[in-house]
């Protein structure tokens, strides 16, 4: 059970950041925390402030009004931190790439470590993505 071992040795605190999403990914993220999946068993906790976060979960298509705020929030995050783009909108823009009010994809604004495609990604996929982000966090820690 490498996942268990990994998750239990370091409990990642995640912060959820919606940049103009349709709620689907956001609901699935919260769904991960509720009884069916309950990732809190492994120490994954949703925190209210980005200053406590190890992993940032970004959803949505990066609305132009959000860009400035997302940059500020990213600067506030403690280092090292991993950024996970959840859902097709934040990975590649979905059809919102044609929109006049979005600045897709998210990687144009802040660097992204892990991509989880899907509209919306299933909770299983989200959990797998968070585990991958743990590996990235380890790498970042070593390179410091």
């Amino acid at each position: 059970m490498s996942f268990l071992k990994k998750a239990l040795t370091k409990s990642p605190w995640v912060f959820h950041l919606s940049t103009g999403s349709c709620n689907n990914c956001d609901i699935e993220i919260i769904d991960c925390l509720t009884p069916r999946f309950d990732v809190e068993r492994f120490g994954v906790m949703l925190v209210g402030s980005i200053r406590h976060a190890d992993i940032i979960l970004i959803t949505g298509s990066m609305n132009k009004k959000s860009v400035k705020r997302v940059k500020v929030l990213y600067e506030q995050a403690p280092r090292p931190c991993a950024v996970v783009a959840c859902g097709t909108c934040s990975c590649g823009g979905h059809f919102f790439r044609d929109s006049y009010n979005t600045d897709t994809p998210v990687s144009k604004t802040i660097p992204v470590d892990v991509y989880i495609p899907g509209c919306p990604p299933k909770p299983e996929a989200l959990i797998a993505g968070i585990v991958k982000a743990l590996g990235k966090l380890d790498e970042k820690r070593k390179n410091r």
């Binding site: 103009g20 609305n63 059809f95 929109s99 006049y100 009010n101 979005t102």
Partner: peptide, 15 residues
């Protein structure tokens, strides 16, 4: 509000 505006109506006109 305005943090969630994505221009859906305009996108509909392109589809």
């Amino acid at each position: 509000i305005g943090y969630n505006h994505r221009g859906i109506e305009k996108l509909c006109e392109m589809r």
